[in-house]
């Protein structure tokens, strides 16, 4: 059984690594898009699935990362690694700040407030000159030379793969650590967690920071990948999409987040005929999921009721 699992994983890894050599440019494009959503879904899952915080403004953190890259690239020539770091840092700070300012707001209230934060982000970028207002920023090109010079679709794929894999590993490491158990304790029973000396505020702020950093990385790669950033890439529909990935994949499950990203990006992309109905099909899936199997397809969240 364990050997079979390893075989599947190794075969999967080989297929993914060889994808740029064997697939059409279109398939590669969709695969890159899926990989861009993996860090977003994982971050959202850490927040909602593992820490139990209802939040639906993830596109704002994604956008902070992308706009940081857009602004940096048009002002100073720094390489891709530094830009990745800066974008992750900026989005992590925003995530931390959001969590700390809203620490007294809980449950459903926080849900609406985070949706609102997405709207506030859009208002800001739509009305500022540094962000190119409604048209956004253009001509975001990575430098040709240097470390991580992403100039071909295949290199974009590998960069996204690297970022996604890093986020998966970080997420697994967090969940296996003391901090990860603290998060789940806060989710399952805040009162008991507090009695055990676990401090809810720094735990939540920390996880918003980590999820922000992951979203910032994705945003940075997206900005390079598209060559432009605009408000339409980070509206509340994107937040909703990320939220859906986590619900359908399974609250609290890392592999579920990856599955959710694949299902919600690749399936509508390849089945053009259902695209018109994809929103509603997602909605039906969410309701069915909640009523029949709240822990998701691959979820592990069985006990919390």
């Amino acid at each position: 059984m364990i050997i079979a699992g390893w075989v599947v994983m190794i075969v999967g890894a080989v297929v993914v690594l060889l994808l740029p050599q064997v697939s059409s440019p279109y398939v590669l494009f969709v695969a890159t898009e899926v990989l861009l959503y993996v860090p977003l879904a994982i971050g959202q899952n850490l927040i909602t699935g593992n820490t139990g915080v209802l939040s639906m403004g993830h596109a704002a953190l994604y956008g902070v990362g992308a706009y940081t890259t857009g602004v940096l690239v048009s002002h100073i020539a720094i390489g891709v690694p530094l830009t990745l770091l800066a974008s992750a840092g900026a989005a992590a700070l925003v995530g931390l700040g959001v969590s700390l300012t809203t620490q007294r707001i809980r449950g459903d209230y926080l849900f609406i407030v985070t949706i609102g934060l997405n709207f506030i982000f859009l208002d800001v970028v739509n009305n500022s000159t540094w962000s190119g207002a409604a048209t956004g920023l253009f001509a975001i090109a990575p430098p040709a030379g240097g470390l991580l010079a992403v100039t071909t679709p295949a290199r974009f794929f590998y960069l996204s793969l690297g970022v996604a894999a890093l986020c998966v590993l970080i997420s697994l490491a967090i969940l296996r650590s003391r901090f990860g158990r603290a998060m789940e304790a806060v989710r399952d029973d805040p009162l008991v967690a507090a009695t055990m000396g676990l401090k809810e505020v720094p735990i939540k702020a920390g996880i918003f920071g980590v999820a922000g950093a992951m979203a910032g990385l994705s945003g940075c790669v997206l900005a390079y990948f598209l060559g432009s950033v605009g408000p339409q890439d980070f509206n509340s529909n994107i937040s909703l999409l990320i939220f859906e990935m986590v619900i359908i994949g399974g609250l609290g499950s890392v592999s579920g987040s990856v599955l959710g990203a694949i299902v919600l990006i690749a399936v509508p992309e390849f089945l053009r005929s259902v695209q018109e109905y994809s929103l509603g099909i997602g909605g039906v899936l969410i309701v069915v999921m909640m009523v029949l199997r709240p822990e998701g397809v691959l979820g592990s969240w069985r006990t919390a009721r």
Binding site: G107, G280, G283, V284
Partner: peptide, 29 residues
Amino acid sequence: AYRPLRTANRIAPTVSAVGVALVLENAAQ
């Protein structure tokens, strides 16, 4: 979408309602 979840955890009915909202929005569209 809501009655089966009346005794479920706090997240489930809110999320289920998001699903209903999506279905209605898509249908109207």
